[in-house]
Design a protein around this nucleic acid. Structure first.
Length: 279
DNA sequence: CTCCGAGTTGCACCCCTGGA
DNA sequence: TCCAGGGGTGCAACTCGGAG
């Protein structure tokens, strides 16, 4: 995701109590910010791992599925940590009159590694934020303002519910790890014909029970989750390989071309070809 | 005009979903 | 746990547009 900046819509800074300053994701390389960044930032580490070096603090290691809230103007540097995998880092920078009090409210979550229980959901919110802004320009910042508020609140909620989950594990042996294993299976095989029955059996649940557990944990059906994964991968492939054909993208996702185009258009409102031409 | 890639549409199958 | 219905998915045939 190429980052999008609010720069050209400066009047919105006066109107919106919370606004998205910049949003994007990419393979992260070494970056120094001795003066800090002018807006608050929420980082999401998706794969690989990296270190945040923040003045006056011990180094912070971000592993896959973790997040970091970094206040504005905090001098820092970040770089990939020894890993064979690229560090896939998403970020959303936000500011506004309400941002300061929001961060104060969340002060226990600032400058600390946050293990996000519903990481993929938060990541998809980041991506939809990027999609929203990249496709709709100024109009979208109003909607983006609502969404960034929602993201920070769900981060807060995730930390609270995480504690509940941890309690469950110690007292009664929660089924959560089995569900996570099933999700890993989905991640490993999303580009194949994946039967929910098999995933459920692998996790040790009946398909119906697995479905119910999945929806309550991830807020969406397994089907929606897999489709989201595929669409996300599709945008990645289209951006990374400008010469790639729509057919081979569909093939890489394990989808039939016509169905892929149908779903892509339904998800993003434009065909894969038009998307590729725009990016 | 032909070729090719992209996109659309209709149809059939069957599996997922969600209510009971 | 069961089961009916909706919708996900694949296939085939088609149109469209651009390039040569």
């Amino acid at each position: 995701m190429m980052p999008f900046l609010l720069a050209e819509f400066t009047n919105l800074e006066e109107i919106l109590p919370l606004y998205v300053y910049c949003v994007g994701s990419h393979e992260q390389k070494h970056l120094e910010r001795p003066e800090g960044y002018p807006a608050h930032q929420l980082f999401l580490s998706r794969s690989g791992q990296g270190i945040f070096r923040i003045q006056g603090h011990a180094d912070i290691l971000l592993t896959p599925g973790s997040a970091l809230l970094l206040p504005a103007n905090q001098p820092h540097a970040y770089f990939p940590y020894e890993s064979t995998e690229n560090w896939d880092l998403g970020f959303v920078a936000f500011d506004g009159k309400a941002a300061k009090s929001l961060l104060e409210q969340m002060n226990k979550l600032v400058l600390t590694v946050l293990q996000v229980p519903n990481f993929e959901l938060l990541w998809s919110q980041l991506e939809s934020l990027w999609q929203l802004i990249s496709l709709n320009g100024e109009q979208a910042y109003w909607e983006a303002s609502k969404r960034i508020y929602g993201m920070t609140i769900s981060l807060l909620e995730g930390q609270a519910s995480d504690k509940k989950i941890l309690k469950g594990v110690t007292s009664s042996g929660s089924p959560q790890p089995a569900l996570q294993a099933a999700v890993k299976l989905i991640h490993d095989h999303y580009n194949e014909r994946l039967l929910l029955t098999n995933v459920a059996r692998a996790a040790g649940y009946s398909p119906q029970h697995f479905h119910r557990l999945f929806v309550s944990s991830y807020g969406m059906t397994p089907q929606q989750y897999i489709l989201q994964l595929r669409m996300r991968r599709a945008t990645q492939l289209l951006q990374e390989n400008p010469s790639i054909t729509v057919e081979s993208v569909a093939e890489k996702l394990g989808m039939e071309t016509s169905y892929f185009i149908r779903m892509f258009k339904r998800t993003y409102g434009l065909t894969p070809k038009k998307y590729k031409d725009q990016s």
